[in-house]
Design a protein around this nucleic acid. Structure first.
Lengths: 209, 209
DNA sequence: TCTGAATTGAACGTACTGGTTCAGAAATTT
DNA sequence: AAATTTCTGAACCAGTACGTTCAATTCAGA
């Protein structure tokens, strides 16, 4: 029972878990570019390099396929973004805070606003009617985790006197809003310019009095 | 030709345009709660109080139905939001700017983040695969219009010395981001608290030196 | 090499829905 | 009141895709 260790050269997904992952990855890719209804299970199987009955061997039905694929992708995005925020841990007490925030902003734009991340949000909210809980589930795995981690970092910066006293959660929301908000109006804006502007404005509002 | 004047007591949509509007309204309502694929034309007809062939009499096919319904709703949302922003025109030179921004923020949250507005954005991005241009079309009718109008108001405030010199478009993006960004993390946040925080932070960043 | 499990390709039944057609009813106009 | 247009209800056709079944084949492990 369980999955056996992959002995081969890994040309194809061997163990059971790996094959399952391959199917979920393929499913996410197809769902992302076609949407739920337009996607037929046959196409998912093709994308995963597998036969249709095999898909149903690993996942109960199309709905499970969707839910699991989106949640797995959300976990990936969350993990990536979290790593970026953790980078803020290493701002030396005498380093330029603006530069640190700017770097974090750049990283966050790459991590939580790349193609995969946007697809996660789109897919989660698109089928909110069919999967009422998927939207909140995805939010928890991505946005809420990121805010929480960022709030931790900001709280330490407040204690260090580098930011004015404030509610860390709200400040985190504001930084992330300043960073990603403009993308609504300019989807192809330069990440560097966005990060610069966000750090600048955030520090004017939240920098030490 | 064209639509005749509605003579009856309006119990039902009489003129041709009115009936068309009734169909589009019904379509938007059903699409909003079911999504595109889950919606069958029969249900739209029922919601509009009309027979299925009548729907096809007024609109070519299901795709037109979707596109036109979403765009009409986007226009409504845009018009509502624009009216709110125009309210900023009347901030007296000696009035409390923070209070004016706060009021505008409250109004904008009602106008461009109510049920209908959120449905517009969801429907536009959900079917971006099928309707590549609908997403940008909806964005132009709502977000871009709002930003433009708000930038106009902010530019005047800069000239009046009530805001520091800045790029009005960017400042508008930042105000809107501060206002609506937190909703990503707290969908049920108090509009009043959001508007207060947004105005507060915005003025710390963009208020006169 | 042998055994059992997993995978494959194909086909099948079923259900749903988009878009159309048609004859009759209703309503509006003349 | 007669005529014309529009709406209605029902039925119909075609296409599509889900989920399943099955025999044949491949693969993993002993």
């Amino acid at each position: 029972m369980g999955s056996e260790v992959s002995t081969g050269a890994g040309r194809k997904a061997r163990g059971r878990d790996e094959r399952r992952q391959a199917i979920l990855d393929g499913a996410f890719a197809v769902f992302a570019r076609r949407g739920y209804a337009q996607t037929c299970v046959q196409e998912v199987a093709q994308e995963a390099g597998v036969a249709k009955p095999t898909v149903y061997n690993h996942l109960a039905d199309k709905e499970s396929l969707y839910r699991e694929a989106v949640e797995a992708a959300a976990d990936r995005v969350g993990a990536r973004s979290l790593a970026v925020v953790e980078g803020l841990r290493e701002v030396a007490p005498d380093a330029d805070l603006r530069e640190g925030l700017r770097a974090a902003g750049r990283g966050l734009l790459q991590a939580c606003h790349d193609e995969e991340a946007r697809a996660v949000h789109r897919l989660a909210s698109a089928e909110a009617a069919r999967f009422p809980d998927l939207e909140t589930s995805a939010r928890e795995r991505t946005a809420l985790r990121i805010r929480s981690a960022l709030a931790d970092r900001l709280a330490r910066l407040v204690l260090a006197g580098r930011l004015r006293p404030c509610e860390p959660e709200l400040a985190a929301e504001h930084f992330l809003a300043l960073l990603t908000g403009p993308l609504v109006y300019r989807p192809d804006a330069e990440p560097d310019a966005l990060a610069r502007a966000a750090a600048e404005v955030f520090l004017r509002a939240y920098g030490p009095g």
